[in-house]
Design a protein around this nucleic acid. Structure first.
Lengths: 214, 214
DNA sequence: CGCTGGATTGAGTCCGGTCAAGCCTTGTGG
DNA sequence: CCACAAGGCTTGACCGGACTCAATCCAGCG
């Protein structure tokens, strides 16, 4: 999570990824396709090779919350007992390395696998706690600022392209798409970020962005 | 987390707790006392023997978010790398079983400890995700209803006593104490719950409460 | 070139926050 | 045992930020 990565290509492999390479299967998914579904039996672990993924949870009345966005090198499907608690969908065309949980037993023994999975789960927990903090106590403007900062930071290069649309941002931040749009416009008005198109931007004033993200 | 427990007394021990009994130390904490602090070195794991605990995170401007409330049998201090990301405070006088992380190595070997810790971390992640969902997409009324339902469910008996005050509830739910208070009054008005005092209530209409908690 | 779906913008509303009194419980000292 | 003080909780009036609904804009694409 803290590592830099090259978008759309396989990144420097995590320890787990290298273990997983020995078992499992690479599968392509088309943009918008479901990788796994909420409440399905959780018998797979997924590692992203290329592309981007969102995890979502749908309530009966249609309200949607996005759990997180995932990029090459990230693992999804850890957070679960017997059933997936979120569904996962491809934000773009992507390739996923899929491993049956049961086949991981082959690699068990020295305990290093267990500890690696635990480590990954802990990082996931940290990210979720950070997300929690944002939802609970930040204003709309601070939320959008934090989001753009996090994405820009992760990519690490000048021009950032967002793999997700406004609705996804809104459902991640607990806002409406109108509010997200207004805040983006506002941040642009104060010359803190600059959008070339709706999904392409760069940060023009990092300190100001950091300050707003609080 | 899903197990029933007797408040204020040691519960049916978790697998981890029984392991931890062999090492570590029982320590008493007074109401309001800090058990560990945000950004301190995280070298301990804490298991609650009796009483109740909150974990909190403070922002520079004073805004506070409560991570979760913990009761006998729960483990805290798992969520962390080198530093605690939240601080933990005693909601009431309580007894905590404290174990040095390093001394857990003694018990390592068969990997069962690793797996148990992982399991605990995963449950923590699940709870955090549930919390996330609530903060992102629920109305004030739904939040308070969910909260009261969860507490009542956990205790399992008729009369529920809240170990935390309104401010703690508010900081957990991402609301102000005034809004919490109004929602409680409202729920009482519709005969869904009944408060004997500010910290003592019972649920009078479970189905309605469940429906509101959505 | 027009179609289509996502993004932006605007006007008006409402939920939850803010500020300010009051109330009730708890605890302390006369 | 009562008086009083202190802190937490409740209630009210008002305000404002985010939502809703609706119109418009714009980029991508046939």
């Amino acid at each position: 999570m803290t590592l830099a990565y090259s978008p759309d290509t396989a990144p420097a492999a995590s320890p787990l990824a290298s273990l997983m390479d020995r078992v499992g299967l690479r599968m392509p998914f088309a943009k918008g396709e479901e990788i796994f579904g909420q409440d399905e039996a959780a018998d797979m672990i997924h590692s992203i090779v290329s592309g981007a993924v969102r995890t979502t949870r749908l309530q009966s009345d249609g309200r949607r919350q996005i759990g997180d966005f995932y990029y090459p090198g990230d693992i999804i499907g850890l957070e679960t007992g017997d059933l997936y608690r979120f569904s996962a969908e491809a934000l773009s065309d992507c390739v996923i390395h899929v491993v049956k949980r049961s086949s991981l037993h082959v690699l068990r023994g020295d305990g290093s696998l267990d500890r690696t999975l635990w480590e990954a789960t802990r990082r996931e927990l940290e990210r979720t706690q950070e997300h929690l903090l944002m939802l609970g106590r930040k204003s709309a403007c601070e939320k959008v600022a934090s989001f753009l900062r996090d994405v820009a930071q992760r990519v690490g290069c000048e021009d950032v392209s967002l793999p997700m649309g406004r609705q996804d941002m809104a459902d991640y931040l607990g806002l409406t798409i109108e509010t997200v749009s207004r805040m983006v416009t506002q941040l642009q008005g104060s010359r803190i970020v600059e959008f070339a198109s709706a999904r392409q931007f760069r940060v023009t004033r990092w300190p100001a962005l950091e300050r707003l993200a609080a």
